[in-house]
Design a protein around this nucleic acid. Structure first.
Length: 372
DNA sequence: GTATGCTTTCGGC
DNA sequence: TTACGGCCGAAAGCATAC
C-alpha cells in the first residue's frame, strides 16, 4: 500500500519530430517554407517516377500523402507553386542523431523507435509527477528548437502505448498529457485502429465482430480475444484496450537485419541482369555489417514483382558466415528458386537482406576464413 | 501443449 | 494509359523439438 503510494505510476514520454524530412529541408532552405514541400524517392525510371516519402502540412492539405506515386502528388499540386525534393538521408541522419542525443540526456532510460521518434522513461526525474513532466516536455521542446530549429510533438502518459497515441493528438508542435486517471476516457472513444499493433487486417476482423472503438474492444472478454487472435496478440489487445502496457522503455541494440533494395531500369526475368544489381547490394549490406564486426547466419533475396507484390526467399546457415562471395552465391540461388515458383510475372525491384547477426569476438581464428 | 526456430508477409515511417 | 521507395521490426504461419 505504502509502496504503491510512493511509486504509483510510471511517467513515459513519446517524442515525435514533426514531418521530419520536409521540416529539415525547410530549415536548410527557408525560402521553401510557406510552399507545399514534397520529399521524394526517385526510382530512376524517368521524370516523376517514384514515391513520396513525406510532405509538409501545406502539401498534405492538398491531399499529398506518404507512399503516393510522385505523379499523383504532381497532379494534386499542379495549380500551386510547390517544391519537390529528393530524399537526403545523410542530412536527416545527422540532424536526428543530434536531437536524439539531446533528448536522451533528459531520460532515465531511452528508446529510439525510428529516425524521428523516441520513448523516454522519466518517472524518476519527474518524481512521478505529471506536472513536472509537463515542464520537462516544454523544456525538451525548447531545447530542440533552440539547438536544431526543429519542432516536435510530445505525448506523456503512464506507459508507451498511451504516450505514443497522445503524441499524435496535437500536431505539429503539440504537447498532450494523459494522466493515469484520464487514460480510460482518453482511450474509450478512439477507433481501434489507433492502438499500436492494430492494422487494416485486425481492424477488419474486429469490425466483423461489431467492434469499432476501444470502448467496444474493452468490453470483449479476454477469452474471446484469445480465441480470435491467439494467446499472445489476444492478451495484448485486452490489456491495450484497458490502457495497460508494461513494456519497458529500453535501449535498442544492433539492428536485427540490414537490407538494401533497388528499382530495376525495367521489369525483367533475366537472372544476369538482376545479378548485376544484387552483387552491389550484397557488397553494401555485407560491408555495413562486417565493418561493425558482426558475422551473420541468414541471407534473403527480395523481389518486388511488376504488380508491386513482394516475394522473399531466405536461407539460414548453421554456422556464422562473413564471406561476400557466399552472400552473392546464396542470393543467386535464392533468386533462381524464387523465379521457378514465380513463372508469370516480371521483377520490378530486387533487394538483399542479411540477418541473424553474431557478434565477432576474441582473436580471429583460421576457420573464420574457411568457406562454409 | 508449449517452446523454439525459420520463412514469409504485413505494415509503419 | 497509367502512374508506386526503401528501409525496418512485428506478425503470422508453419515445422519440429521438448
Amino acid at each position: 500500500m505504502l509502496v504503491e503510494a510512493l511509486q504509483p505510476f510510471r511517467v513515459v514520454m513519446h517524442v515525435d519530430f514533426d514531418y521530419f524530412f520536409a521540416q529539415v529541408e525547410e530549415r536548410e532552405n527557408p525560402e521553401i517554407k510557406g510552399k507545399p514541400v514534397v520529399i521524394c524517392v526517385y526510382s530512376g525510371r524517368g521524370e516523376d517516377r517514384g514515391a513520396v516519402s513525406t510532405a509538409n502540412y501545406m502539401a498534405r492539405k492538398y491531399g499529398v500523402k506518404s507512399g503516393m506515386p510522385i505523379a499523383f502528388a504532381r497532379k494534386r499540386l499542379k495549380n500551386v507553386e510547390a517544391e519537390f525534393l529528393p530524399v537526403n538521408h545523410r542530412l536527416y541522419d545527422g540532424v536526428s542523431e543530434k536531437i536524439m542525443a539531446l533528448i536522451h540526456s533528459h531520460a532515465d532510460s531511452f528508446e529510439q523507435a525510428g529516425i524521428d521518434e523516441a520513448f523516454l522513461e522519466v518517472t524518476q526525474r519527474v518524481e512521478g509527477s505529471f506536472e513536472k513532466a509537463r515542464c520537462l516536455a516544454i523544456e525538451i521542446k525548447r531545447q530542440i528548437f533552440a539547438e536544431e530549429k526543429i519542432t516536435c510533438s510530445i505525448g506523456v502518459g503512464p506507459n508507451k502505448l498511451v504516450a505514443k497515441i497522445a503524441a499524435g493528438k496535437q500536431k505539429p508542435d503539440g504537447l498532450t498529457i494523459v494522466k493515469p486517471e484520464e487514460v480510460q476516457p482518453f482511450l474509450l472513444g478512439l477507433p481501434v485502429r489507433e492502438l499500436v499493433g492494430v492494422g487494416r487486417k485486425t481492424e477488419k476482423t474486429l469490425r466483423n465482430l461489431g467492434v469499432k472503438t476501444v470502448e467496444e474492444l474493452a468490453a470483449m472478454s479476454l477469452d474471446r480475444l484469445i480465441d480470435t487472435f491467439g494467446r499472445s496478440f489476444g492478451s495484448y489487445l485486452h490489456k491495450a484496450a484497458h490502457g495497460v502496457d508494461e513494456s519497458p522503455v529500453q535501449q535498442r541494440g544492433q539492428p536485427e537485419s540490414v537490407s538494401r533494395m533497388v528499382t530495376l531500369k525495367e521489369d525483367t526475368r533475366d537472372i544476369a541482369t538482376m545479378m548485376r544489381e544484387i552483387a552491389s547490394l550484397a557488397r553494401a549490406v555485407h560491408s555495413t555489417v562486417v565493418a561493425q564486426r558482426f558475422s551473420f547466419r541468414s541471407v534473403s533475396v527480395i523481389a518486388v514483382m511488376e504488380d508491386l507484390t513482394m516475394r522473399l526467399r531466405s536461407k539460414t546457415f548453421e554456422k556464422p558466415i562473413k564471406n561476400l562471395k557466399i552472400v552473392e552465391h546464396t542470393a543467386e540461388e535464392l533468386l533462381k528458386h524464387l523465379l521457378r515458383e514465380e513463372l508469370e510475372r516480371s521483377v520490378r525491384r530486387v533487394g538483399v537482406k542479411i540477418h541473424n547477426f553474431i557478434e565477432e569476438k576474441g582473436q580471429k581464428e583460421l576457420t573464420d576464413f574457411v568457406e562454409t
